[in-house]
Amino acid sequence: MGLFRRWFGGTEQRSGEAVASPAPPETLAVSDESVRSDGEQGEDSRLRAKIQDLLDTAINPAVAGHGGVVSLVDVKDKMVYLQMGGGCQGCGMADVTLKQGIETMIREELPEVVEILDVTDHAAGQNPYSAASKK
């Protein structure tokens, strides 16, 4: 099962992950730890810790103002998988929040991050802060 089960299965689980937890992307579920070197795994672990710290201290306090929460799903090969919940899930401005806000903050601190991906099921958002409404 690889990284996804490990990340959610132990004490590392964070409070935000309780907000929304659709099935993880298949690419994460079938990842094969055995083919990755210790160095790669160590680098991802380091990034994971740094990003979680950014989420706890800067990102989530900001999005909480709109009832939102952002959870770290995983870091694999320096690719960061995030999930948005609460008012961010399905919000018409979720892309702005991710690309202009969260991504900028993460890249400023951690320029080695390759990509930041949103794995949220936005269609399931029950109370988005701002739902798209125009043609």
Binding site: A62, H66, M93, V96, T97, Q100, T104, M105
Partner: peptide
């Protein structure tokens, strides 16, 4: 580089004043 202008203040406007 994009500066996003909206009719409501974005949650990251204070943290990223050059982008919102």
């Amino acid at each position: 580089e994009v500066v996003v202008a909206s009719e409501r203040a974005h949650v990251f406007q204070q943290a990223q004043p050059g982008r919102f």
